[in-house]
Each structure stands twice: as C-alpha cells, then as structure tokens.
Simulated assay, not measured.
Amino acid sequence: MTKCHIAYLACTAALLGAGLGATPAAAVRATLVVHPGESIQKAVDAAQSGDTVLVAPGTYYESVKVTTPGLTLRGSGRTTVIMPDPKVAVTPPGTTASSSADTTKDTASCAEGGNGICVVGTKTHNLEGVTVSDLTVTGFARSGVFGMATDGMTVRKVYAVKNGVWGIAQERSVHGVFRKNYARDNGDAGLFLANTIKAEEGATDTGGVVVDRNRLEGNRIGLTVRRLRNLTVAGNYVTGNCAGVFVVGDENKPKAGAVTVRDNLLVSNNKSCPKTERLPALQGSGVVLTGAEDSLVTRNLITGNAGNSPLSGGIVLFKSFVGVTSERNRISDNTLDNNSPADLVNTDTGQGNSFTGNYCRASKPSGLC
C-alpha cells in the first residue's frame, strides 16, 4: 500500500469520524507559536480556551497578562527568557511586597506593576485552568509570575530568577499546583502563597494547593505560606535562603494552618537578611510555624541551618509577633542535625503541640528530641 493510499484512508477515517459525532470544530485546540521578535501578548490575546501558546527559545522584552481560561503558556525551557520592557515605566506606589498586588487589580497594569506574567481573574469569577511552564522570568521589579483569583493554576518548570520581590506568587486562589520550579535570588520569597496582601482577613481554604519538587535557593525566604489552610508542601529542595519554609498566621479568623510539610530537604539556609516591618533579621531557619494550627511537619531532612535570629533553628514554633500562639501542630519523624541554636525550638506557649519520633541532637527546651 502506497503512502498516498495511507493518507487517503486516514482522511476518509477522519471524515467518517466527523459524521459520527466527532469533537466539534470549536473544541479543537490550537498551538500558536511565537518566535523571537514577535509578541507573546498578541498570541495570548488571539488564543482561545484550551489553546497553547508555545514560545520558542530567545529573549522577549515584555510582560504578559493571561485572562483566557484553560490557556497554556509554554516556553521551550530555560532558554525562553522573559524580561522587562525597558520602555515601560513601573508604577511607583511603594516598593514593598504589600504594594505589589495593588497594581495588578487591573490586568492591563501587569507591566506597570513590575510583574512578568500575570494570570488574573475577577472579583466575582476565578480564572480556571491556566498553565505556565518551561520558561525563565527574570529582572522584574516585583514578581516573575503572579496569579490572582485563579482556580487550578499550574506553574511548572519555571525559572524565576532575580526578581525584586517574589519569584512566583499567588493570592486569592484555589487548587493551584507549583511543581519542579526553580526560584533563585528573588528579593523576598522564591514562592509566595497568600490569601490576600492588602487586607486583613482570616485564612482561606486553598482546596488542596500542592507545592511539589521545587528548588528554592538564595531568596530571603524559600517558601512563604501566609494566612492559608489546606495545602501540601512536599519533596522540595530548599537551600541558601535566609529562611527555608514559613507558615504564617496572625490574629485573624479562621486561623492559618492545616498545612502538611513533608519529605523536604532543607539545607544551610544561612544567608543573612535584615529586619523588616513584619519580621526580625533572618538567618538559619529551616521550617518556622508562627500563629498556625493543626499542621503536620514530618519526614523532612533538615541540616546545617544556623543563626542568631529569634527564628533560627531546624524546626521552630514561634508565637506570632501579634501574640497569636501556634496550637495542635504535630512535629514527627523528622531527621535534624547541626542546626543552631537547636534542631527543635519551641518558644510558643500554645496548647497541644507535639514532638514525636524525631531524630535530633539538641532542642530548646530540652527533651523534645
């Protein structure tokens, strides 16, 4: 049988399928390819739900906002680089992390807000099913990738390097997946997840956000989980930050917590960072729970985290700076070594916290190992 016959039979089969209830043409997914010198934003604007915007290797000087549900924005690996457009001025309302979200409430302000890729829903409807993967975002004044009001946003194999505040950040969102990313040398957290930045509100249920197998290195904090509930942090490699993993709550209700931190490797997070309005100077923190409840920290390997901060140590329970205690947290079956001032540190006065089955040498107070 010749190739022409094979091609003819394939076409005939496709036509028969079309007559027998095949997927409507409107549901066919397209791939839009962007090459150096072309605009990623134009391709994103032209794409429909379910489409993929595939970005070829090269450097692209722009910010990109995504408002189409089900869209995949995929690069060709770390050689697809997105950097700020030098012709776009960043809006100046402050340079702190708390101001970075204010400028993204209008999605058109992604670039002016100092962000690289913005995935943003509305106040009344979460943007569903967007994926950002296989690219580098670097040099942005605030965030490399920023998601707000999203449902099921996936960020995978993104290299977020040397951004001013966060490498990858998300707020007011549910069901997110952050997997196999590399966040390095960002000004605040490599990966930052929060309920909201600009308002005082109780912790929100994420619906099971997953933070899995990321490398977080050289940031102020590797991962910050702020005023959230119901998520899993597993299998990450966290090293060279001022602090490794923070689970942070405060006086708002419901309380932060129900977070599982398991099977992570936290090594030598000994970079020194000065104090801020919210936190003292940081150095040598592995995992810190402050103002959190009902969380599980288990089967982690935590070694070589040393410093003189009130938050220094391998695993630290610390009463929040507004006086909220941590309660009913379980610290179990971790391996800790050579952390200072101790492998396990509990300065919290909260009730129901337990330390069981941990392999370690020293604790404050003594008797936790």
Results as ranks from 00 to 15, higher is better:
296 L>Y: 06
330 R>W: 06
290 T>A: 03
300 N>W: 13
254 P>M: 11
273 C>V: 02
269 N>P: 01
239 T>G: 01
322 V>I: 11
276 T>L: 12
329 N>D: 07
327 E>M: 08
300 N>I: 14
262 R>N: 09
251 E>Q: 12
275 K>V: 00
232 T>H: 02
252 N>E: 15
356 T>K: 14
314 G>Y: 10
250 D>A: 14
294 D>Y: 13
279 L>P: 00
296 L>V: 14
301 L>Q: 13
267 V>E: 09
299 R>D: 01
341 P>W: 13
267 V>W: 00
329 N>R: 04
356 T>F: 14
352 G>Q: 14
354 S>M: 12
255 K>I: 06
315 I>T: 07
270 N>T: 13
265 L>W: 07
234 A>H: 02
306 A>Q: 08
343 D>N: 13
320 S>G: 10
355 F>I: 04
362 A>I: 03
306 A>R: 15
228 L>V: 14
328 R>S: 13
283 Q>I: 04
293 E>A: 12
321 F>I: 04
269 N>D: 08
263 D>C: 04
300 N>G: 08
327 E>N: 07
342 A>L: 05
288 V>K: 05
260 T>I: 10
328 R>A: 14
331 I>Y: 07
313 G>N: 06
227 R>V: 06
265 L>C: 03
332 S>M: 08
323 G>Y: 12
272 S>Y: 02
233 V>W: 01
274 P>A: 15
233 V>D: 03
344 L>P: 02
323 G>C: 06
303 T>G: 02
275 K>Y: 02
225 V>P: 00
322 V>S: 10
324 V>H: 11
255 K>G: 05
237 Y>N: 05
304 G>M: 09
337 D>Y: 15
303 T>L: 04
331 I>R: 09
325 T>I: 06
356 T>G: 10
361 R>Y: 10
